[in-house]
Design a protein around this nucleic acid. Sequence first.
RNA 1: GGGGGUGUAGCUCAGUCGGUAGAGCAGCGGCCUUUUAAGCCGUGGGUCGAGGGUUCAAAUCCCUCCGCUCCCA
Length: 494
Amino acid sequence: MEERNDQMQVRWEKLQRWREGSRAYPNTFRRDAEAGDLQRRCADMDAAALEQEPISARLGGRLMTRRVMGKASFADLQDGSGRLQLFLSRDELGEGAYAQFKELDLGDVIGVEGTLFRTKAGELSLRVHFLQLLAKALRPLPEKWHGLSDAETRFRQRYVDLIVTEQTRRTFQIRSATVAALRQGLAAARFTEVETPMMQPIPGGATAKPFVTHHHALDMTLYLRIAPELYLKRLVVGGVERVFEINRNFRNEGISTRHNPEFTMLEWYEAYADYHIAMDRTEQLIRAAAQAALGQTKIVYQGQEIDLEGAFARLSVAEAVRAYNPDLRAKNLRDPEVLAAKLQELGMPVQAGWGWGKRLIEIFEKTVETQLLQPTFIIEYPTEVSPLARANDADPEVTDRFELFIAGRELANGFSELNDPEDQAERFQAQVLAKEAGDDEAMFYDHDYIRALEYGMPPTAGVGMGIDRLVMLLADQPSIREVILFPHLRPEQA
RNA sequence: GGGGGUGUAGCUCAGUCGGUAGAGCAGCGGCCUUUUAAGCCGUGGGUCGAGGGUUCAAAUCCCUCCGCUCCCA
């Protein structure tokens, strides 16, 4: 049991007096206004205007700062929409209520009623004539000026962070607006939103290490999903021709500024479309999200201006690798020996089983990815590293696939879907061999998915978009933990 | 896994060459009826992450461990 410090002790004693004096923690106060709304509504009203047409308001919120000047005081009340200054005077409030105000602590949740006016300095304020304590803050808030800077405390006690850090509130507003805009954009294009299993007997749709759990009644192993892909494509087989899901994926891998074990993905599938159409839609959705969340499509990420307005660049993996590795010749980009030499030079020796495709992608990830600051679609991914994508008609060693990079990070991955069940079965078989060779990220063979494809899946394009990374971009946040309300942390020491 | 940074009051942070542990905010007691990081006077609050070592003396130097954080793999 954590012991109370001196400040908590004082507050706790006040709580005991509150309990004795009246019904503590009442739920009878009702508000009829919010601070931010009043600020906007009165933005153009000067002192005289407010005097002529008095506006009264009942507000609930948290006492954030206080300036007591003997028989009159100012205070700042913060609610979910913003802040408003309160003015309280002994003469208007009465001796008892004013004394009660002075006994409040910073952080207390209160209800107030009063009339709006402007101070000499011109600040919109509420002249309070009624005041009620609604919930006691037994713990002191962080410092009013510097706020909370310890990252661990900010994530562990996100509620405190949200109280005192304006930027955190803003980030999660952007997140909400972003997701809403994506949902709305897809709904407007007549996509159907669905929910598919989070617990899967065969984790598919991506190459990643899954979390494993166990169902006791059925005595079976289940995996938390690493992607919804194979279920969504089953729905396309079933005739849900435009389908999407926004939900969590789980990957049992490292934690970093870009990775959280659970993260949010948008995936959508569109029948009778190809990856070019998917790229167009990706571009439109991101633009619409920026517009909705920020009101603009030219944004700044970590000091770098990024233009989401113009058409996104499109170039092939091979072109991109050559652009950043001028020593490589175009004709050599499928030569395993040349690629092996390059990898050696980069300090990444070739591993067993890597064909030219895997070798090229390793070079791409090492030398190109982080350079792609402006929105860029990279296309023509090697078939070897794209087990679910449709092979290109003219050049079956690459696929009709793209990944979108912005600010040096992958934001989306999409392709014309592989809907040939025999081809898909062969790709699964290759993954099984890779798994047997020791690649624990390789895919499982999913017989039911093959069976679904055997009923015939229309030609389809699909896209997966990382919502957390998109929000990082739009909210100008360097770490994924800044855009996840409760990021994964080690358990707190007892 | 490797490297860097960091851990001191509720919060944000100082702490020099090893010599009595500090400031601001917050708190507590006062003064103050237009402040807005309000101001003024007074005042309480510390397992200096943990353990060990060196020393007359350790927040400070050394060792081990733990946490957090950033970069790299």
